[in-house]
Design a binder for these strands. Structure first.
Lengths: 232, 232
DNA sequence: ATATATTTTTAGACTTATCTAAAAATTGCA
DNA sequence: TGCAATTTTTAGATAAGTCTAAAAATATAT
């Protein structure tokens, strides 16, 4: 959505442009899907830009030792690159919590603003924000917030789609956090913390009937495949 | 301190780059001192940049009808330019309040972070931040926060230096808000809201002896000339 | 294995915001 | 008033991040 860049007079060594930080974050997220290296095209799609631009930026990141890169081989984050990416993700998610908890934002409204706030440079700001929010462990979509050292708490969660008939659990996160999906969930009163039980599951299209708040609801595989559940 | 710029894909008409916003803000502040028009050099000094860069930017702002500009005649903000400048100042000062009130920042630490936060684009963010902070009227340095319509509350304040012997008032603001001055005030327990009474005033160097918290303190004209007082 | 298709990189260009150096306009002083 | 000093603008460069179009490398498929 945004293409931003920042320059700071008397730039400190560990300060990167908005664009660099956005690339590092994108590579971090894509590395889960492509653990052997993120391709130029995959990154271009994620960044909503052209492959040629990606190549240019990868070279820049590689020169700064933020990524390991060999031509035509894709990129992986270096230790330093991962550190920066995680720090940006931490800031993004803390700001999301702030927006929802303190500023009355709905969970489908926070992303674009957090995309801007995540680039604010101030150690103290984020340390104090964390304290102010009482050290939250998850953002409004259920995604884990890495601690100041960059460690993600591990949660045992499973997709609702993978539950069998009769199984139940607590809704703890969303895989898709686009406004459209989140608004769908709002509309049907599905929110984090709610108990969901699988009443029926169709072999044909994987749709299921679930119990939620004493009511029953039929949902498609596209829905159940994007909801994370902690089984009880 | 910072030179920033932002681009947004599918840029809305009333969105400006960091740099544009910073120039508008600087012109706004300088217009008080130069009501007939802000000179290129004055603006260059304020922006810590070169006159040639200022000329370039002024042309850009003029093309966008944010300033009125005739070559060699200096600039003045247009109605639209003033609107944007005030909006940035509003955001800056609200964020300063947030940092001090909620995040334990001292008043000498807020400026650089607020310089970054003031450029975040979100109507809702600033509306909700204002509400969250309970609609503050002044920032931590006593400067007025314009309301959502851009109106500044008018305060009747006077420089401590202009008080005569025997006069007293409440400290309501600082003219200089550099960390060095603010730290000096902290060190001597001078803060907003305190009552100050002029006990003696030297004709020779304008220094004065003031009463503060039952104690007496001798301060130079450089100090009294940067403290705003509301006379009681 | 070789030709085709796809992916990736390179080359050259554009924009924003900056700079230096030189030219033009204005101001100020004697 | 007229020449020097100052201020402002112009001209030409640079850097970051982007783009398009073409070339190079890799992957695929018969």
């Amino acid at each position: 959505m945004f293409i931003n860049f920042v320059f700071l007079k008397s730039k400190k060594s560990h300060m990167y442009t908005f664009s660099e930080e956005n690339y590092l974050k994108a590579i971090f997220h894509l590395e889960r899907m492509y653990p052997s290296g993120v391709s130029t095209n995959a990154l271009a799609e994620q960044m909503e830009t052209k492959a040629s631009s990606v190549t240019d930026m990868i070279k820049k990141l590689s020169d700064k030792d933020l990524v390991n890169y060999k031509k035509y081989q894709g990129v992986k984050l270096s230790r330093a690159g991962k550190h920066t990416a995680v720090s940006v993700i931490r800031k993004h998610r803390l700001w999301e919590v702030f927006l929802v908890e303190k500023l009355n934002f709905n969970w489908d409204e926070v992303h674009d603003v957090a995309e801007q706030l995540e680039h604010i440079q101030s150690e103290k700001l984020i340390k104090e924000l964390d304290r102010f929010l009482e050290f939250p462990k998850r953002d409004p979509h259920g995604d884990p917030i890495p601690d100041a050292e960059g460690n993600f708490a591990v949660f045992n969660k499973v997709l609702l789609a993978d539950l069998d008939k009769g199984e139940a659990g607590i809704c703890v996160g969303v895989r898709d956090s686009t406004p459209a999906f989140l608004q769908f969930l709002d509309k049907h009163n599905i929110s984090l913390g709610k108990e969901i039980k699988v009443m029926e599951k169709e072999d044909f299209d994987q749709s299921m009937k679930i119990k939620l708040d004493q009511a029953e609801l039929r949902i498609s595989h596209q829905i159940s495949g994007n909801l994370y559940i902690k089984t009880t």
